[in-house]
Simulated scan of single mutants.
Amino acid sequence: MKRKILTLLLLIAATPLAAQLYHPGERLDYRVSYRAKMFPNTEIGAVEVSTVEESHDGTNCYKVVGAGRTLPTYRWFFNVEDIYTVWVDPQTLRPMAFNSSIREGDYTFRSDYVYDWEHSEIRTRWQSRQRPEKHKNMPLEENSMDPISLFFTLRAADVASFREGEPATLQMVLEDTIRHLRYRYLGRETKKIRNMGKFRTLKFDCQLGSSQGYSFTDGSVFTIWISDDENKIPLYIESPVKIGSINAYISGYKGLKYPLSSLIK
């Protein structure tokens, strides 16, 4: 359950696009809760996704940071601090580099990716705890992305291009494997978000394949509701676990490029 909290939230909003919406100054805040029969809605964590302009290796780019942390009340029980960062070329809107720093209890993990689009290759390196660092080069395809890049993939989509119930698949780079994300558009739905109000949303059913890449029999399943406006903000995600479910919902936002017209006043 612990690894699902941030990873799933950063995977949401994933469909193929010709472009993605990166807007410097935008910040999205989320709360993560655990829900079960004996725990109707227990908030356990917070996630922040922010975009700024920054120079990386001498190139001006968009820097997007996704940070997930356990709320102070629960840090004594299990302390989580996961930070994912991606640098994006503002001209091509392709990711240039990716970094993750994960601390969950006594477990630590870091990884770095370098995208070489000219030679269609991605170079990855990763290390957990005190184990030796590992490296791997893998083929890079147009729709191969890290979790943060996938987070933005839906943002500029033309809603008219969605076909209800039609399945599609994307690829996600994870250290030494290419995992597959399968999704289906389920249609429009009005969704009430705690402390935020009611929104017109686009609903998607998603499934992340296992580490073998093509197998979906033991992957993660989740449902995502996205704002039905030009911003395409992920508003709510729900994923079942062995007992109950993990839920993440938007709790605040600022610096949006477009009006949040999906909010029903």
Rank of each mutant, 00 (worst) to 15 (best):
L11R: 00
D29S: 09
K37M: 11
S245N: 01
I148P: 03
D89P: 06
I5G: 01
G252E: 05
Y253S: 03
R123L: 15
K257P: 04
Y258A: 04
N195L: 10
D228A: 09
G255C: 00
E189F: 03
R188A: 12
T15Y: 14
A18H: 10
E166K: 12
F152L: 04
E189S: 08
E26A: 06
E133V: 12
P132E: 06
V159M: 14
S251R: 03
I102P: 01
F151E: 00
G66W: 00
H119D: 13
E54Q: 11
Q171F: 08
L154T: 10
N137M: 12
A160C: 05
S211G: 12
E104R: 08
I250N: 02
Y74I: 04
F78L: 15
F151L: 03
A97V: 09
K203V: 11
S101Y: 03
I237V: 09
G105S: 04
R110H: 10
S50M: 06
E142N: 13
A67Q: 11
C206K: 04
W126D: 01
L8R: 01
H56A: 11
T124F: 02
I148W: 00
M145N: 12
Y34N: 08
D228E: 11
L263C: 02
N99D: 04
I122C: 11
A18T: 11
K191F: 01
I102R: 01
I5C: 13
H180L: 03
D112S: 11
I5M: 09
I246D: 12
T92A: 14
H119I: 08
T124I: 03
L260I: 01
G105F: 05
G66S: 04
P147R: 00
Y214V: 08
A67I: 12
E189G: 04
H180D: 00
P90Y: 03
Y113C: 05
S144T: 13
I5K: 12
M1F: 15
A19C: 08
V159A: 14
V88W: 09
V52W: 05
G68F: 01
E121R: 15
R179M: 09
A157P: 08
S101C: 07
I178H: 04
T70N: 06
N247L: 15
I102Q: 02
